[in-house]
Structures are given as structure tokens and as C-alpha cells.
């Protein structure tokens, strides 16, 4: 982000400049604008053509985009998250189309996840062996060793469900594709009289669960995601194979590595383990009895 380039292109008086990530908020004294490097030219037009207008107006479009500044009102994060999920569901609903299944792509997803599971199983086996040789474990090692069964459970769950998902996807001819925002977070929803999604730079077209997956990785630990998922599915119910893949992705344990700082390790491990507990809690109602749908699904039906 180069301020002097922005100044040259738009010739605005700059009373105040605020740089936030990849965007810059300029205050001319009279009004405020957001300036961003122009990356994605087509997505906004496409959204417009599909009747999704929950994004700020673009005033000028050249090497940099000059975007209307939205004065957002303060609201609790839970409310923000609900607004966000409603908008995302709407985005997915409005931009859905069906595409013939690309067998190679799904085979690759299957193989990638299967390899990942195999690798993580071996990785944690080895790690545990090393930890167990120690007479006195460090706090971070103890934290991992104490919860290791949880990792194995998650891995075997993923392995089982992955087979099921792959069998399911093989029988399908078409899959749903939507426009993904691909960068969902609480900072990217603004609200006044209307709600706005901002930061569309990473948006792309793919299956809908990737948006949910990213959002879950960012917000799953701090908020009740079953409620969020329920809200999403009210507007845009997930298909069985989509939900399966979503659960596999979120249940897959991360690769935890030891660094030089035991304190940092403990913080990171604790965070990840906490998220894994939450994930188990989120997923388990769907699998407690295979013949039964979970509680919120039943309500919907």
C-alpha cells in the first residue's frame, strides 16, 4: 500500500490515514473512503448480477479501488457472527449452480486427506514415544501426552468418515458450487442499517463448506458453532456429502510442533485442544445414533 500512489491517483486531501492490513482508510476531513489494491475485478459484477448487494459501493476503480467507508455500529460479537452467517448463507444461496463432478478433483481431495491422516498417525506415534522416554515432561509435553487419545480418536473418526464420504461422492453426478468469500471473520462484517461483507480479495468459486471451515477455524473456539451452523442451514441446508466433508475437515487434528518456547507451546496446544473438544461436541449429535438425525435437523424437518 503506497500512500503517495493513492494520493496521485485519487488526488484527495489526506487529513487522516489509517492503515489496517491491506486496506487504508483515508479521511479527507469531509468524508472517509477505503482504498484497496485492486485484485479482483469480476467478482463484484458477478455478485451484482446474482442480486447479492451486501458489499460497500465502489466509487472509483483503477489500480486501486476507492470504496465507500461504512460507519459500523458496535454490537456484540455473537450478534455479528449471526449476521455474518446469515449473509454467507444468502451469498451461497444466491450464487449456487451445479457443476458436473470432476472425479479427479475429488479423488485428489480424498487422497490428500487420507495421506494426511496416515502422516499424523505416525507423527503423533513418534512424538509420544519421544515424550514417554522423559522422566520429567515439560508442561507442553504433558499437555499433549495427556490429551493424545483425543487426537487418535479424531484421526480414526476422520478415517472412517472419509471412506463413507468418498463412497457417497462417487455416486454423485453433480456438485453444488457457490461464490466463496473465502476470508470470513468478525472484522469483515459491518453493520448499520444494512449489513455489509467486506474484503472480497480472496473470493473464488468452489463448494460451500470451505467458507464454513475457515470461519470455524477462526471463531469455533469462542462461540457456539452449533447454533451458527443451524442458522446457516435454515437458509442453505447442506447436502449429506457436504456436511460429511465439513466434519472431516474440522475434526482433522492439526500438526502440533514444539518450539523453543514452552509457554507459547502451551498456549497454542491448549487452544487447539480446546477447539478439538468443541468440534467433538459439535459433531457428536450427528453421529450418536446413525439412524437418527441430530436434534436441530429434526426440528427443521
Amino acid at each position: 500500500m503506497k500512500i503517495n500512489e493513492i494520493k496521485k491517483i485519487f488526488d484527495l486531501p489526506l487529513r487522516k490515514i489509517e492503515i489496517r492490513g491491506k486496506s487504508c482508510i483515508v479521511d479527507t476531513g469531509e468524508c472517509k473512503y477505503v482504498v484497496k489494491k485492486n485484485i479482483n475485478h469480476d467478482i463484484i459484477n458477478y455478485l451484482n448480477s446474482r442480486g447479492f448487494k451486501y458489499y460497500p459501493n465502489i466509487i472509483e476503480d483503477s489500480d486501486y479501488k476507492l470504496i465507500e467507508y461504512i460507519e459500523s455500529i458496535n454490537m456484540p460479537d455473537e450478534q455479528k457472527l449471526l449476521d455474518l452467517i446469515n449473509l454467507v448463507a444468502l451469498l451461497h444461496a444466491k450464487t449456487t449452480f451445479f457443476k458436473e463432478i470432476d472425479n479427479d478433483k475429488y479423488k485428489k481431495i480424498y487422497e490428500d486427506i487420507a495421506n494426511n491422516i496416515y502422516y499424523l498417525n505416525n507423527y503423533y506415534d513418534d512424538l509420544l514415544k519421544v515424550i514417554e522416554t522423559k522422566v520429567f515432561m515439560s508442561p507442553s509435553e504433558y499437555l499433549l501426552a495427556r490429551n493424545i487419545s483425543f487426537f487418535y480418536e479424531a484421526l480414526s473418526f476422520c478415517e472412517r468418515q472419509l471412506q463413507e464420504w468418498y463412497e457417497l461422492i462417487k455416486t454423485k453426478e453433480k456438485v453444488r458450487q457457490v461464490v466463496l468469500h473465502n476470508n470470513l471473520s468478525l472484522e469483515h462484517i459491518l453493520r448499520n442499517n444494512n449489513a455489509y461483507l467486506i474484503s472480497w480479495d480472496k473470493s473464488k468459486i468452489d463448494i460451500p463448506i470451505f467458507d464454513l471451515y475457515k470461519l470455524y477455524r477462526r471463531c469455533g473456539r469462542n462461540y457456539d458453532f452449533s447454533e451458527i451452523l443451524h442458522h446457516y442451514e435454515k437458509i442453505y441446508p447442506l447436502l449429506k456429502e457436504e456436511r460429511e466433508l465439513f466434519f472431516i475437515l474440522i475434526a482433522l487434528p492439526p500438526k502440533l510442533e514444539f518450539t523453543s518456547s514452552v509457554f507459547d507451546d502451551c498456549v497454542v496446544f491448549n487452544r487447539e485442544i480446546e477447539l478439538m473438544f468443541k468440534t467433538a461436541k459439535l459433531i457428536s449429535p450427528y453421529y450418536t445414533n446413525n439412524t437418527k438425525e441430530p436434534q436441530n435437523q429434526k426440528e427443521k424437518n
Partner: peptide, 8 residues
């Protein structure tokens, strides 16, 4: 630096 602003 997560955000920085300059005002004059």
C-alpha cells in the same frame, strides 16, 4: 503492527 493511523 495490526493497525496504524496518522492524523495531522
Amino acid at each position: 503492527i495490526t493497525s496504524i493511523s496518522l492524523e495531522h
